[in-house]
Design a binder for these strands. Structure first.
Lengths: 190, 190
DNA sequence: CGAAAAGTGTCCGTAATCCAACAATAGCAA
DNA sequence: TTGCTATTGTTGGATTACGGACACTTTTCG
Protein backbone atom coordinates (compact mmCIF):
# COMPACT_ATOMS: atom_id res chain seq x y z
CA UNK A 1 0.00 0.00 0.00
CA UNK A 2 1.06 3.58 -0.51
CA UNK A 3 2.09 4.31 3.04
CA UNK A 4 4.98 6.66 2.61
CA UNK A 5 3.92 10.28 2.20
CA UNK A 6 6.52 10.80 -0.48
CA UNK A 7 4.80 8.34 -2.77
CA UNK A 8 1.49 10.07 -2.32
CA UNK A 9 2.99 13.46 -3.03
CA UNK A 10 4.88 12.45 -6.14
CA UNK A 11 1.90 10.61 -7.56
CA UNK A 12 -0.30 13.58 -6.86
CA UNK A 13 2.16 15.92 -8.52
CA UNK A 14 2.63 13.68 -11.54
CA UNK A 15 -1.08 13.20 -12.06
CA UNK A 16 -1.78 16.89 -11.65
CA UNK A 17 0.96 17.66 -14.15
CA UNK A 18 -0.57 15.46 -16.80
CA UNK A 19 -4.00 17.01 -16.28
CA UNK A 20 -2.50 20.46 -16.62
CA UNK A 21 -0.61 19.52 -19.77
CA UNK A 22 -3.78 18.14 -21.31
CA UNK A 23 -5.17 21.67 -21.33
CA UNK A 24 -2.69 22.68 -24.01
CA UNK A 25 -1.71 19.41 -25.66
CA UNK A 26 -3.15 16.16 -26.89
CA UNK A 27 -2.40 13.15 -24.73
CA UNK A 28 -0.26 11.70 -27.49
CA UNK A 29 1.65 14.95 -27.74
CA UNK A 30 2.51 14.88 -24.05
CA UNK A 31 5.92 13.36 -23.33
CA UNK A 32 7.15 11.80 -20.14
CA UNK A 33 9.78 14.51 -20.03
CA UNK A 34 7.04 17.14 -20.07
CA UNK A 35 5.31 15.53 -17.13
CA UNK A 36 8.53 15.24 -15.16
CA UNK A 37 9.52 18.80 -15.83
CA UNK A 38 6.18 20.26 -14.78
CA UNK A 39 5.80 18.03 -11.75
CA UNK A 40 9.44 18.46 -10.77
CA UNK A 41 10.13 14.75 -10.51
CA UNK A 42 12.97 12.85 -12.08
CA UNK A 43 12.32 10.39 -14.87
CA UNK A 44 13.64 7.52 -12.80
CA UNK A 45 11.03 8.31 -10.18
CA UNK A 46 8.30 8.46 -12.78
CA UNK A 47 9.11 4.97 -13.99
CA UNK A 48 9.22 3.78 -10.39
CA UNK A 49 5.52 4.62 -10.17
CA UNK A 50 4.18 4.04 -13.66
CA UNK A 51 5.05 1.80 -16.59
CA UNK A 52 4.62 4.64 -19.05
CA UNK A 53 2.34 7.59 -19.71
CA UNK A 54 -0.47 5.27 -20.72
CA UNK A 55 -0.26 3.52 -17.39
CA UNK A 56 -0.41 6.90 -15.72
CA UNK A 57 -3.50 7.89 -17.66
CA UNK A 58 -5.12 4.54 -16.88
CA UNK A 59 -4.64 5.01 -13.17
CA UNK A 60 -6.00 8.53 -13.23
CA UNK A 61 -9.05 7.43 -15.18
CA UNK A 62 -9.50 4.42 -12.92
CA UNK A 63 -9.42 6.66 -9.88
CA UNK A 64 -12.19 8.91 -11.11
CA UNK A 65 -14.13 5.92 -12.38
CA UNK A 66 -14.07 4.34 -8.94
CA UNK A 67 -15.07 7.61 -7.33
CA UNK A 68 -17.95 7.91 -9.73
CA UNK A 69 -18.95 4.29 -9.19
CA UNK A 70 -19.22 4.87 -5.45
CA UNK A 71 -21.30 7.99 -5.90
CA UNK A 72 -23.60 6.35 -8.42
CA UNK A 73 -24.16 3.48 -6.01
CA UNK A 74 -24.98 5.84 -3.15
CA UNK A 75 -27.30 8.03 -5.15
CA UNK A 76 -29.28 5.10 -6.53
CA UNK A 77 -29.67 3.66 -3.06
CA UNK A 78 -31.04 7.00 -1.90
CA UNK A 79 -33.91 6.78 -4.35
CA UNK A 80 -37.19 6.46 -2.49
CA UNK A 81 -40.47 5.46 -4.08
CA UNK A 82 -38.97 5.71 -7.52
CA UNK A 83 -38.44 9.42 -7.00
CA UNK A 84 -35.32 10.16 -9.00
CA UNK A 85 -35.42 13.90 -8.40
CA UNK A 86 -32.26 13.98 -6.38
CA UNK A 87 -30.39 11.53 -8.56
CA UNK A 88 -29.88 13.82 -11.51
CA UNK A 89 -28.88 16.86 -9.53
CA UNK A 90 -26.97 14.87 -6.90
CA UNK A 91 -24.53 13.21 -9.23
CA UNK A 92 -23.78 16.49 -10.94
CA UNK A 93 -23.06 18.09 -7.59
CA UNK A 94 -20.89 15.16 -6.54
CA UNK A 95 -18.64 15.65 -9.51
CA UNK A 96 -18.37 19.41 -9.14
CA UNK A 97 -15.34 19.08 -6.86
CA UNK A 98 -13.24 17.73 -9.71
CA UNK A 99 -14.66 19.98 -12.38
CA UNK A 100 -11.40 20.83 -14.11
CA UNK A 101 -10.04 17.30 -14.13
CA UNK A 102 -13.26 15.77 -15.37
CA UNK A 103 -13.75 18.28 -18.15
CA UNK A 104 -10.20 17.60 -19.28
CA UNK A 105 -10.49 13.84 -19.10
CA UNK A 106 -13.77 13.86 -21.00
CA UNK A 107 -11.79 15.02 -24.01
CA UNK A 108 -9.42 12.05 -23.84
CA UNK A 109 -10.48 8.87 -25.55
CA UNK A 110 -7.77 6.26 -25.47
CA UNK A 111 -8.42 2.54 -25.95
CA UNK A 112 -8.05 1.58 -22.30
CA UNK A 113 -8.61 4.99 -20.76
CA UNK A 114 -11.88 6.64 -21.65
CA UNK A 115 -13.53 8.26 -18.67
CA UNK A 116 -16.66 9.34 -20.47
CA UNK A 117 -17.19 5.80 -21.75
CA UNK A 118 -16.69 4.46 -18.24
CA UNK A 119 -19.26 6.86 -16.85
CA UNK A 120 -21.79 5.89 -19.50
CA UNK A 121 -21.21 2.18 -18.88
CA UNK A 122 -21.67 2.56 -15.14
CA UNK A 123 -24.77 4.66 -15.49
CA UNK A 124 -26.30 2.31 -18.01
CA UNK A 125 -25.71 -0.67 -15.75
CA UNK A 126 -27.29 1.03 -12.76
CA UNK A 127 -30.25 2.27 -14.73
CA UNK A 128 -30.91 -1.24 -16.04
CA UNK A 129 -30.76 -2.64 -12.56
CA UNK A 130 -32.98 0.10 -11.18
CA UNK A 131 -35.61 -0.39 -13.87
CA UNK A 132 -35.61 -4.13 -13.47
CA UNK A 133 -35.97 -3.88 -9.68
CA UNK A 134 -38.74 -1.34 -10.04
CA UNK A 135 -40.71 -4.18 -11.47
CA UNK A 136 -43.42 -2.38 -13.38
CA UNK A 137 -43.96 -3.60 -16.90
CA UNK A 138 -43.38 -0.98 -19.52
CA UNK A 139 -44.72 -0.24 -22.94
CA UNK A 140 -41.18 0.15 -24.31
CA UNK A 141 -38.10 -2.07 -23.95
CA UNK A 142 -36.33 -1.69 -20.64
CA UNK A 143 -32.98 -1.25 -22.35
CA UNK A 144 -34.31 1.74 -24.21
CA UNK A 145 -35.47 3.27 -20.97
CA UNK A 146 -32.11 2.64 -19.33
CA UNK A 147 -30.31 4.18 -22.24
CA UNK A 148 -32.49 7.23 -22.04
CA UNK A 149 -31.87 7.60 -18.33
CA UNK A 150 -28.15 7.27 -18.85
CA UNK A 151 -28.06 9.86 -21.62
CA UNK A 152 -30.14 12.38 -19.75
CA UNK A 153 -27.91 11.89 -16.73
CA UNK A 154 -24.71 12.41 -18.67
CA UNK A 155 -26.12 15.48 -20.34
CA UNK A 156 -26.89 17.11 -17.03
CA UNK A 157 -23.51 16.15 -15.56
CA UNK A 158 -21.56 17.56 -18.47
CA UNK A 159 -23.70 20.65 -18.61
CA UNK A 160 -23.21 21.26 -14.91
CA UNK A 161 -19.46 20.80 -15.24
CA UNK A 162 -19.15 23.17 -18.17
CA UNK A 163 -21.33 25.85 -16.66
CA UNK A 164 -21.29 27.05 -13.08
CA UNK A 165 -23.14 25.71 -10.11
CA UNK A 166 -25.61 28.53 -10.30
CA UNK A 167 -28.18 27.13 -12.67
CA UNK A 168 -27.79 23.43 -11.91
CA UNK A 169 -31.02 23.26 -9.98
CA UNK A 170 -33.05 24.90 -12.71
CA UNK A 171 -31.68 22.66 -15.44
CA UNK A 172 -32.00 19.51 -13.35
CA UNK A 173 -35.57 20.40 -12.50
CA UNK A 174 -36.45 21.06 -16.13
CA UNK A 175 -34.88 17.86 -17.37
CA UNK A 176 -36.45 15.88 -14.57
CA UNK A 177 -39.88 17.21 -15.45
CA UNK A 178 -39.47 16.08 -19.03
CA UNK A 179 -38.25 12.68 -17.97
CA UNK A 180 -41.16 12.22 -15.60
CA UNK A 181 -43.61 13.10 -18.33
CA UNK A 182 -42.11 10.48 -20.58
CA UNK A 183 -42.19 7.94 -17.79
CA UNK A 184 -45.86 8.58 -17.21
CA UNK A 185 -46.57 8.01 -20.86
CA UNK A 186 -44.78 4.71 -21.19
CA UNK A 187 -45.50 3.23 -17.78
CA UNK A 188 -48.64 1.19 -17.40
CA UNK A 189 -51.30 2.68 -15.14
CA UNK A 190 -51.38 1.42 -11.57
CA UNK B 1 22.33 27.12 -2.81
CA UNK B 2 19.10 25.24 -3.22
CA UNK B 3 20.07 23.06 -6.12
CA UNK B 4 18.22 19.86 -5.44
CA UNK B 5 14.65 19.91 -6.68
CA UNK B 6 13.45 18.20 -3.53
CA UNK B 7 14.54 21.14 -1.40
CA UNK B 8 12.71 23.55 -3.63
CA UNK B 9 9.57 21.47 -3.54
CA UNK B 10 9.49 21.03 0.22
CA UNK B 11 10.20 24.68 0.87
CA UNK B 12 7.49 25.65 -1.56
CA UNK B 13 5.02 23.29 0.09
CA UNK B 14 5.90 24.40 3.59
CA UNK B 15 5.63 28.08 2.75
CA UNK B 16 2.36 27.58 0.92
CA UNK B 17 1.02 25.64 3.88
CA UNK B 18 1.74 28.47 6.29
CA UNK B 19 0.09 31.00 4.01
CA UNK B 20 -2.96 28.81 3.75
CA UNK B 21 -3.16 28.31 7.48
CA UNK B 22 -2.96 32.05 8.04
CA UNK B 23 -6.34 32.36 6.35
CA UNK B 24 -8.02 30.65 9.29
CA UNK B 25 -5.60 31.14 12.17
CA UNK B 26 -3.35 33.72 13.72
CA UNK B 27 0.35 33.19 13.16
CA UNK B 28 0.82 32.48 16.85
CA UNK B 29 -1.97 29.92 16.73
CA UNK B 30 -0.29 28.04 13.91
CA UNK B 31 1.83 25.14 15.11
CA UNK B 32 4.71 23.45 13.36
CA UNK B 33 2.66 20.28 13.41
CA UNK B 34 -0.10 22.06 11.50
CA UNK B 35 2.31 23.18 8.84
CA UNK B 36 3.82 19.73 8.49
CA UNK B 37 0.45 18.05 8.27
CA UNK B 38 -0.87 20.38 5.59
CA UNK B 39 2.32 20.40 3.56
CA UNK B 40 2.81 16.67 4.02
CA UNK B 41 6.36 16.99 5.27
CA UNK B 42 7.84 15.40 8.35
CA UNK B 43 8.85 17.50 11.29
CA UNK B 44 12.46 16.48 10.96
CA UNK B 45 12.45 17.83 7.43
CA UNK B 46 10.87 21.06 8.56
CA UNK B 47 13.65 21.63 11.06
CA UNK B 48 16.21 20.76 8.41
CA UNK B 49 15.06 23.86 6.53
CA UNK B 50 13.99 26.29 9.21
CA UNK B 51 14.92 27.00 12.80
CA UNK B 52 11.28 27.38 13.81
CA UNK B 53 8.05 28.84 12.53
CA UNK B 54 9.37 32.35 13.06
CA UNK B 55 12.33 31.62 10.86
CA UNK B 56 9.94 30.31 8.25
CA UNK B 57 7.85 33.45 8.38
CA UNK B 58 10.98 35.59 8.20
CA UNK B 59 12.12 33.88 5.04
CA UNK B 60 8.74 34.18 3.38
CA UNK B 61 8.56 37.86 4.22
CA UNK B 62 12.14 38.38 3.11
CA UNK B 63 11.34 36.76 -0.22
CA UNK B 64 8.46 39.06 -0.99
CA UNK B 65 10.41 42.02 0.33
CA UNK B 66 13.23 41.33 -2.08
CA UNK B 67 10.81 40.86 -4.93
CA UNK B 68 9.19 44.17 -4.10
CA UNK B 69 12.56 45.86 -3.75
CA UNK B 70 13.52 44.80 -7.25
CA UNK B 71 10.26 46.00 -8.71
CA UNK B 72 10.43 49.31 -6.92
CA UNK B 73 13.93 49.82 -8.26
CA UNK B 74 12.86 49.06 -11.80
CA UNK B 75 9.76 51.21 -11.71
CA UNK B 76 11.61 54.22 -10.34
CA UNK B 77 14.27 53.88 -13.00
CA UNK B 78 11.57 53.88 -15.64
CA UNK B 79 10.40 57.31 -14.59
CA UNK B 80 11.02 59.81 -17.37
CA UNK B 81 10.88 63.56 -16.97
CA UNK B 82 9.46 63.21 -13.52
CA UNK B 83 6.35 61.58 -14.97
CA UNK B 84 5.27 59.16 -12.28
CA UNK B 85 2.09 58.06 -14.05
CA UNK B 86 3.26 54.52 -14.58
CA UNK B 87 4.83 54.16 -11.16
CA UNK B 88 1.62 54.00 -9.19
CA UNK B 89 -0.19 51.66 -11.50
CA UNK B 90 2.90 49.63 -12.33
CA UNK B 91 3.77 48.58 -8.83
CA UNK B 92 0.22 47.55 -8.14
CA UNK B 93 0.22 45.42 -11.27
CA UNK B 94 3.58 43.90 -10.36
CA UNK B 95 2.22 42.65 -7.08
CA UNK B 96 -1.00 41.28 -8.55
CA UNK B 97 0.60 37.89 -9.22
CA UNK B 98 0.93 37.21 -5.51
CA UNK B 99 -2.37 38.73 -4.51
CA UNK B 100 -3.43 36.05 -2.02
CA UNK B 101 -0.07 35.76 -0.33
CA UNK B 102 0.40 39.52 0.01
CA UNK B 103 -3.07 40.14 1.37
CA UNK B 104 -2.47 37.43 3.94
CA UNK B 105 0.97 38.66 4.93
CA UNK B 106 -0.23 42.22 5.28
CA UNK B 107 -2.26 41.04 8.25
CA UNK B 108 0.79 39.62 10.02
CA UNK B 109 2.85 41.99 12.13
CA UNK B 110 5.59 40.19 13.99
CA UNK B 111 8.69 41.92 15.37
CA UNK B 112 11.08 40.71 12.69
CA UNK B 113 8.55 39.84 10.03
CA UNK B 114 6.28 42.66 8.94
CA UNK B 115 5.81 42.79 5.22
CA UNK B 116 3.71 45.93 5.19
CA UNK B 117 6.31 47.75 7.25
CA UNK B 118 9.02 46.57 4.88
CA UNK B 119 7.09 47.83 1.88
CA UNK B 120 6.57 51.22 3.48
CA UNK B 121 10.24 51.49 4.40
CA UNK B 122 11.37 50.64 0.88
CA UNK B 123 8.95 53.04 -0.73
CA UNK B 124 9.86 55.83 1.61
CA UNK B 125 13.55 55.37 0.89
CA UNK B 126 13.02 55.44 -2.86
CA UNK B 127 10.74 58.43 -2.73
CA UNK B 128 13.28 60.36 -0.71
CA UNK B 129 16.00 59.50 -3.19
CA UNK B 130 13.80 60.36 -6.13
CA UNK B 131 12.82 63.73 -4.70
CA UNK B 132 16.37 64.60 -3.82
CA UNK B 133 17.64 63.67 -7.27
CA UNK B 134 14.85 65.64 -8.90
CA UNK B 135 16.62 68.65 -7.53
CA UNK B 136 13.86 71.25 -7.57
CA UNK B 137 13.49 73.22 -4.38
CA UNK B 138 10.13 72.80 -2.73
CA UNK B 139 7.92 74.87 -0.55
CA UNK B 140 7.41 71.97 1.86
CA UNK B 141 9.95 69.64 3.51
CA UNK B 142 11.19 66.87 1.24
CA UNK B 143 10.50 64.23 3.88
CA UNK B 144 6.88 65.25 3.96
CA UNK B 145 6.66 64.86 0.21
CA UNK B 146 8.30 61.45 0.35
CA UNK B 147 5.96 60.33 3.05
CA UNK B 148 3.02 61.43 1.01
CA UNK B 149 4.25 59.59 -2.04
CA UNK B 150 4.78 56.46 -0.03
CA UNK B 151 1.35 56.55 1.53
CA UNK B 152 -0.44 57.20 -1.71
CA UNK B 153 1.51 54.35 -3.27
CA UNK B 154 0.64 51.90 -0.52
CA UNK B 155 -2.99 52.88 -0.67
CA UNK B 156 -3.21 52.10 -4.35
CA UNK B 157 -1.34 48.82 -3.96
CA UNK B 158 -3.53 47.58 -1.16
CA UNK B 159 -6.67 48.73 -2.90
CA UNK B 160 -5.66 46.97 -6.08
CA UNK B 161 -4.90 43.79 -4.19
CA UNK B 162 -8.19 43.78 -2.35
CA UNK B 163 -10.28 44.58 -5.38
CA UNK B 164 -9.90 43.11 -8.81
CA UNK B 165 -7.72 44.26 -11.66
CA UNK B 166 -10.68 45.81 -13.39
CA UNK B 167 -10.67 49.28 -11.92
CA UNK B 168 -6.99 49.66 -11.18
CA UNK B 169 -6.43 52.05 -14.05
CA UNK B 170 -9.27 54.34 -13.05
CA UNK B 171 -8.18 54.54 -9.44
CA UNK B 172 -4.53 55.00 -10.28
CA UNK B 173 -5.40 57.77 -12.72
CA UNK B 174 -7.58 59.53 -10.19
CA UNK B 175 -5.00 59.34 -7.46
CA UNK B 176 -2.25 60.42 -9.80
CA UNK B 177 -4.23 63.47 -10.86
CA UNK B 178 -4.63 64.54 -7.28
CA UNK B 179 -0.96 64.00 -6.56
CA UNK B 180 0.05 66.03 -9.58
CA UNK B 181 -2.16 68.89 -8.51
CA UNK B 182 -0.52 68.94 -5.13
CA UNK B 183 2.92 68.81 -6.71
CA UNK B 184 2.13 71.80 -8.88
CA UNK B 185 1.07 73.77 -5.85
CA UNK B 186 4.14 73.14 -3.79
CA UNK B 187 6.77 73.10 -6.49
CA UNK B 188 8.37 76.43 -7.37
CA UNK B 189 7.65 77.74 -10.85
CA UNK B 190 10.24 77.02 -13.52
C1' DC C 1 17.62 7.47 -47.96
C1' DG C 2 20.76 8.92 -43.73
C1' DA C 3 22.10 11.76 -39.94
C1' DA C 4 20.69 14.49 -36.09
C1' DA C 5 17.47 15.21 -32.55
C1' DA C 6 14.12 13.82 -29.36
C1' DG C 7 12.03 10.43 -26.58
C1' DT C 8 12.01 5.91 -24.04
C1' DG C 9 13.12 2.86 -20.42
C1' DT C 10 16.73 1.23 -17.05
C1' DC C 11 20.54 1.49 -13.97
C1' DC C 12 23.25 3.00 -9.73
C1' DG C 13 25.50 6.06 -6.29
C1' DT C 14 24.21 9.94 -3.67
C1' DA C 15 21.17 13.15 -1.33
C1' DA C 16 16.90 14.28 0.82
C1' DT C 17 13.01 12.81 3.23
C1' DC C 18 10.41 9.86 6.16
C1' DC C 19 9.22 7.61 10.41
C1' DA C 20 9.30 6.64 15.07
C1' DA C 21 11.20 7.51 19.17
C1' DC C 22 13.01 10.58 22.63
C1' DA C 23 13.73 14.32 26.22
C1' DA C 24 12.55 18.95 27.29
C1' DT C 25 9.56 22.75 27.66
C1' DA C 26 5.21 25.43 27.76
C1' DG C 27 0.42 25.88 28.68
C1' DC C 28 -3.47 24.68 31.21
C1' DA C 29 -6.78 22.65 34.48
C1' DA C 30 -7.73 20.65 39.02
C1' DT D 1 1.39 23.84 43.57
C1' DT D 2 0.63 19.31 40.97
C1' DG D 3 -0.24 16.72 37.26
C1' DC D 4 -1.54 16.36 32.34
C1' DT D 5 -1.47 17.41 27.65
C1' DA D 6 0.41 19.61 23.67
C1' DT D 7 4.19 21.32 21.43
C1' DT D 8 8.96 21.73 20.52
C1' DG D 9 13.37 20.35 18.79
C1' DT D 10 16.63 16.37 18.02
C1' DT D 11 18.38 11.88 16.58
C1' DG D 12 19.33 7.49 13.70
C1' DG D 13 18.14 3.98 10.50
C1' DA D 14 15.06 2.89 6.64
C1' DT D 15 12.90 4.51 2.53
C1' DT D 16 12.34 7.29 -1.41
C1' DA D 17 13.72 10.58 -4.88
C1' DC D 18 17.32 12.72 -7.48
C1' DG D 19 20.81 13.23 -11.09
C1' DG D 20 23.20 11.60 -14.68
C1' DA D 21 24.60 8.08 -17.53
C1' DC D 22 23.56 4.43 -20.74
C1' DA D 23 21.59 1.79 -24.86
C1' DC D 24 17.77 1.77 -27.58
C1' DT D 25 13.78 3.36 -30.50
C1' DT D 26 11.20 6.88 -32.80
C1' DT D 27 10.72 11.18 -35.02
C1' DT D 28 12.33 14.94 -37.65
C1' DC D 29 14.42 17.05 -41.43
C1' DG D 30 17.68 18.00 -45.19
Amino acid sequence: MSKDVRKIKTERDIQQALLTLLNSKTFRQVTVADICQLSMTSRSTFYAHYLDKYDLLDKIVDGFTQLFENRVGLRFKQIINGETDNLLRGLAVDMADNRDALLTLFTVHEPNADLEANFRTLLLREWKRFIKESGGKMKVPEDLMASMGMNVQMTVIQWALSHGDGEIDDVAAAVDTIRKAILLQIQPED
